[in-house]
């Protein structure tokens, strides 16, 4: 019983790392641009399919093809940014959020139905030769691919953090978050900063999607739930904090798996675990809108 519970928590952390990764992408975009891209989950879905088809058609290992998933999402993100979102840069914050929400919603409708049309509604997953491999530790099973995914997510989040802290471009991004007018007066081209953070956010979604495809499964309708999860985690983590967001993802994963376990023991449906994240989210919104780890001061 205790072992089964611990096993559940491990699964929670493993999926939570992917929630965190996806949410970090969304949060980066929102933090810098104040664009609320509700098509984020669809970007993730596209990344999953890119990886799936590379594997299915040409047997490219999903971990080897990660750069390809990144590149396709960089391109996709750039296209959508230039065609649609770049028109929103000059708007005031409230209008910007509202309009990007509406645009993102249109984009998600398009991508989801395009995927449905092109690739059918079937649930897919990438099954490699090593997919079933598991190693045991203290009687708990650690699926190889999911552990690898967690490590990749961790590396990417750390790399992003270093990029933001150490590089000139990263600092320009952070400056833009704080005050875009002052940043402009430093000679920073905020259009480029916006584009950069938008495509980086899309690329992170793409990686998350590819990892979901190999560790779990993908389907055209998955976007909505991933967007919601990312939003939930973004708010849990406190807007703007990369580390906070990633930890928020793991907390969501843990909460879900714990609830799932308890619901199962109590004879309830497993799907209740989907609800608990949303309830947690509403509670945080109401009682701690600055997030679990955010601080109130600016």
């Amino acid at each position: 019983m205790l072992e089964a519970f611990a096993q559940n928590l491990v699964y929670g952390v493993l999926i939570g790392a992917l929630y965190g990764l996806a949410a970090v992408g969304l949060s980066l975009v929102f933090g810098v641009t104040k664009f609320l891209n509700v098509a984020h989950g669809e970007f993730l879905m596209v990344g999953g399919y890119a990886s799936f088809w590379l594997f299915t058609l040409w047997q490219v290992d999903p971990f080897v093809s990660l750069p390809a998933a990144i590149v396709s999402l960089l391109v996709l993100g750039a296209v959508f940014y230039q065609a649609l979102f770049s028109r929103m840069v000059k708007l005031t914050e409230g209008v910007k959020i509202q309009n990007t929400l509406l645009i993102g919603f249109g984009v998600s409708l398009i991508l989801q139905n395009l995927a449905l049309k092109l690739w059918t509604a079937d649930t897919r997953s990438i099954t490699t030769a090593y997919s079933g491999q598991v190693f045991n530790f203290l009687g708990i099973r650690f699926p190889l691919v999911r552990v690898a995914s967690l490590l990749i997510a961790l590396v990417l989040v750390i790399a992003l953090q270093l990029f933001l802290r150490r590089t000139y471009t990263g600092k320009a991004l952070r400056a833009t978050v704080e005050n875009w007018e002052a940043a402009t007066l430093m000679g920073i081209d905020i259009h480029r900063v916006y584009l950069l953070s938008f495509v980086m956010g899309a690329a992170l979604a793409g990686v998350a999607g590819a990892l979901v495809g190999v560790g779990y499964s993908i389907e055209p309708g998955m976007g909505m739930s991933w967007t919601l999860k990312s939003l939930v985690v973004m708010v849990l983590g406190g807007l703007g904090s990369i580390t906070g967001t990633f930890v928020g993802g793991i907390i969501l994963g843990l909460t879900e798996s714990a609830t799932g376990f308890i619901a199962l023991m109590a004879g309830g449906g497993l799907t209740y675990k989907e609800v608990v994240g949303l309830v947690l989210f509403l509670l945080v919104l109401v009682f701690r809108p600055e997030g679990l780890f955010g601080s109130k001061e600016g």
Partner: peptide, 17 residues
């Protein structure tokens, strides 16, 4: 309108963007 979340040095570095 300094960048409050960054160090003084980082602010100055950004000035030399």
């Amino acid at each position: 309108k300094v960048f409050t979340g960054m160090s003084v040095l980082e602010n100055l570095e950004l000035g030399a963007f």
